[in-house]
Write a protein that binds this DNA or RNA. Structure first.
Length: 821
DNA sequence: CGTCCATATCTGTAGACAGCATGTC
DNA sequence: CTACAGATATGGACG
């Protein structure tokens, strides 16, 4: 079937596809057309990666737009959102407009309503529904990429509920779900009332095999001799073999999957010995430039190690890397400059990075819950293998699992090569998931009674899959109880029906996109300190208070999730002695609220990913816990009796990291001290920023909009956001002034925004290392009348003072963490 | 007495969404 | 109830 023969697409699209080289549709695409994607039929396409799934989605969306509709493309990762956007933008020539909306990037709120195609993450779509984005009603086509992720325990339920909501809002909605080949695609199709297109077909052949001894044994019965000399690494030999196999004049790149960050790094180091000697002079030059760029992203050891490996054409890839690191590596690997990437599973599910050969080195991964090394899911291994075969470059892709003995080889064949992927199973009936979604469902008006709620939940995959309807109802009831007890929902029993409505705070929590338990934790902590400090404000916050007070009374049981409210005497631990001399301790109630207290509060919330306690950390943080006991908001669990103490310490470690960041500690110090990578630091800071912003809103509810708590939270948030001490807050708020410039200006004697307007220009210029343009911009943003730097000489002493004060080397030109995004 | 290698012991373990309002060196 | 690779410490043989 030729693209020009398709009907229902915008004018010129068929020809454009042909020009792109699409002479004939792939069999699964053809099947999708026959199933009616172009006519608005819903469809589940369960096909391998890189077999043209995206085109199926495009056909659906473009034909929907041609009929005057609007399409939404749901992605699982932010990085994929930009990738898809770029891909879809080629239709702008045909009058199709594209917009993106993710947590950190919005192509302008209102403007989205005018876009034909919107790309967003599932969480963002959920949030947009909760906040009543008007264009949701206009959607006629929704595409869900990687739907098999509904199986994911933490994020799957969001996708599931979001699809159910979209379909309820708009019963005629065309739903196109793209899935990996899974065990039960038919069930997904049944759930979505969709046609099913299932296929194993791939445009590039994939040969899967197991290497053992001196050869790879492929699934088709063929063998490839790859002898491993004594003492030589199996992986290294396979990577070398792929590189030395010159087909189409190109040595093939490899992707090596391992099971930990550390393994990824050490593997990359070792494989550098394989890739290094095979580089051309030109490649070496370009890699040196790339390495310099990598070093510029961050000055941590991680960054340095990565750059070292990259100079030899090898790289590692895991979540400890900063986002820039990752995209630099992905790009250079796609451009065939980097010959080999050793990666954790980040890369298996992330952006498109095909390789000539995929080596699955580790097939087991540590799992704390499991209590040891757990074999990877079949689906996961299939996804890794699916990365083999670069379109247009390779005649076929090779995926190789490694076995060290014959028994393992047999097991790998049985377990992965011959096996079908597991069936997808909904994880919706877990309490944390329902807690969030039940509140949101009620708050945004999808249900107003218990019966209506259960009816709505009938539209989820969970309901389609389970034969035990009672379980969902039971979990729902316990969640309703929790939400009511914490004052997020009101329940009224009248006759046989139980009506549900969200309270003011319930609506707020839903819109803030907080886990209700996070909100409860934060409210609890904030109320604790406000109640002690400021009884007068109580009246203003009565709305939020009463509910919870009533809830307290209703709840006698010690449910750990509820938190305990009464802490006797918040200031019994002596003076809280924060590092900030600027805070007026005496007589200022907000001084009871220290940044550490707030960082700990948000860190012990379920929305913050836990930092690991390593050996020795227990003692370290137990000590800190006692030293700074007075700063914590809420009750400190007992070291000996309370199982929550461990979590409390883990949160304390996170809080300390944030405190260090807000104390201008260099990122390499932080990385070393907490055993994390630059990506982790940035992630923590980002999450804290988000949660503190939410806490600010909650504090306004508890303490009144101008309460001390609100101000304290805002200050703590800004300090994390800018990564500066209290004294630099004013300066760092000026546009173009960040962590480093603020510190240099301050050391040169320019301490406030007002100083910037008055200060000697020579001093300012000196502190900014003689950058005239930058200095002018900053003065302008600070509101100076005459920002011109014409004829000003940089003050040498200002420059010297600034350099000495900032503590890092001169002229390194290194970006700090605060520079990301 | 220092070096090198073989063996025992210890240690630590994948991932990444959201709000809000615009910009670092 | 469950593992295992890499880093580090330990110890012995050797020149």
């Amino acid at each position: 079937m030729q693209p020009t023969a398709l009907s229902g697409l915008p004018a010129g699209v068929g020809e454009a596809l042909e020009a792109e080289g699409v002479a004939d549709l792939y069999p699964p695409q053809e099947a999708a057309v026959e199933a009616g994607v172009l006519d608005g039929e819903s469809l589940v396409a369960a096909v391998p990666t890189a077999s043209g799934k995206t085109l199926i989605a495009e056909l659906a969306m473009l034909s929907a737009i041609e009929r005057g509709g609007k399409a939404l493309y749901i992605v699982p990762l932010r990085a994929l959102a930009s990738e898809k956007k770029a891909e879809f933008e080629r239709w702008e020539d045909h009058g199709v407009t594209v917009g993106v909306s993710t947590g950190n990037y919005d192509s302008d709120g209102e403007w989205l309503a005018t876009r034909d195609v919107i790309v967003a993450t599932s969480e963002k779509v959920d949030s947009l529904i909760r906040n009543g984005a008007p264009w949701i009603d206009d959607l006629t086509c929704v595409v869900s990429d990687e739907v098999h992720l509904v199986d994911d325990a933490s994020r799957g339920p969001t996708l599931e509920v979001t699809l159910a909501k979209l379909r309820q809002v708009n019963p005629g909605l065309q739903t196109v779900a793209l899935s990996a080949t899974v065990g039960n695609a038919d069930v997904i199709a049944e759930w979505l009332d969709a046609e099913l297109v299932e296929s194993e077909w791939r445009p590039i052949d994939l040969r899967v095999g197991v290497h053992f001894g001196n050869a790879i044994n492929f699934d088709d019965g063929s063998q490839r001799e790859v002898p491993v000399d004594r003492g030589e690494e199996q992986t290294a030999r396979l990577v070398a073999d792929a590189l030395d196999t010159e087909e189409e004049g190109q040595g093939g790149s490899s992707l090596v999957f391992v099971n930990s960050r550390r393994n990824a790094e050490s593997s990359a180091r070792k494989l550098a010995d394989v890739t290094g000697p095979r580089l051309t002079v030109d490649e070496r030059d370009r890699l040196r430039e790339l390495a310099a760029e990598i070093r510029g992203v961050s000055d941590t050891d991680t960054s340095e190690d990565l750059a070292d490996a990259v100079e030899d054409g090898s790289a590692f890839h895991h979540a400890g890397l900063a986002a820039e690191h990752r995209s630099l590596i992905e790009g250079a690997f796609r451009d065939r400059l980097i010959k080999c990437v050793s990666a954790t599973p980040t890369l298996a599910a992330g952006v498109n990075t095909p390789a000539r050969r995929v080596v699955v080195r580790d097939w087991r991964r540590y799992d704390g819950e499991f209590g040891g090394m757990k074999p990877l899911d079949v689906l996961e291994v299939h996804q890794m293998c699916g990365r083999a075969g670069r379109p247009g470059l390779d005649p076929y892709g090779e995926a190789v699992l490694l076995a060290s003995d014959a028994d393992t080889m047999d097991e790998l064949f049985d377990r992965y090569v011959w096996a079908d992927a597991e069936p997808v199973r909904s994880k919706l009936a877990a309490e944390p998931a329902l807690r969030t979604h039940v509140l949101a469902t009620v708050a945004s008006g999808f249900a107003s009674t218990r019966g209506g709620l259960l009816e709505f939940l009938e539209n989820t995959l969970y309901a389609t899959q389970t034969d035990d309807a009672g379980r969902l109802a039971a979990v729902t009831d316990s969640v309703l109880e929790y939400l009511a007890a914490n004052g997020f929902l009101e329940r009224d029993r009248e006759g046989g029906t139980e009506s549900l409505s969200a309270t003011g705070i319930g609506h707020t929590v839903s819109r803030l996109y907080l886990d209700p338990m996070s909100a409860a934790t934060m409210i609890d902590g904030l109320r604790d300190v406000c109640a002690v400090d400021d009884a007068a404000v109580e009246g203003a916050a009565a709305g939020a208070y009463e509910r919870s007070a009533a809830a307290d009374a209703a709840d006698d049981g010690e449910d750990p999730g509820f938190g305990t409210y009464s802490r006797v005497g918040g200031d019994d631990g002596g003076e809280t002695d924060a590092d900030d001399a600027d805070v007026d301790a005496a007589g200022d109630p907000a001084s009871d609220i220290t940044p550490l207290g707030l960082y700990h509060l948000v860190s012990r919330t379920p929305d913050m990913y836990e930092l690991y306690l390593k050996s020795g950390d227990r003692e370290t943080y137990t000590e800190i816990c006692y030293e700074r006991e007075a700063e914590f908001l809420g009750d400190v669990p007992s070291e000996y009796e309370d199982v929550r103490f461990e979590d409390w310490l883990a949160a304390l470690k996170t809080a300390r990291l944030l405190e260090d960041w807000a104390d201008e500690v260099d990122e390499d110090r932080i990385a070393e001290r907490y055993g994390v990578g630059p990506g982790d630091i940035r992630g923590k800071v980002d999450t804290a920023e988000w949660l503190l912003r939410a806490a600010e809103t909650l504090a306004a509810d508890v303490d009144g909009v101008d309460g001390d708590a609100v101000l304290a939270v805002r200050r703590a948030r800004k300090r994390v956001e800018y990564g500066v001490r209290e004294q630099l807050l004013d300066l760092a708020g000026v546009r173009d002034v960040g962590r480093k410039r603020a510190r240099r200006l301050y050391e040169a004697g320019v301490e406030t925004r007002a100083d910037l307007r008055e200060a000697d220009k020579g001093v300012v210029l000196g502190a900014l290392r003689g950058r005239e343009r930058t200095a002018e911009r900053i003065l302008e943003h600070a509101g100076r009348e005459d920002p011109s730097m014409d004829g000003i000489d940089a003050d040498r002493s200002a420059s010297a003072a600034a350099t000495a004060g900032s503590g890092d080397g001169d002229d390194e030109g290194q970006a700090s963490l605060g520079d990301f995004r």
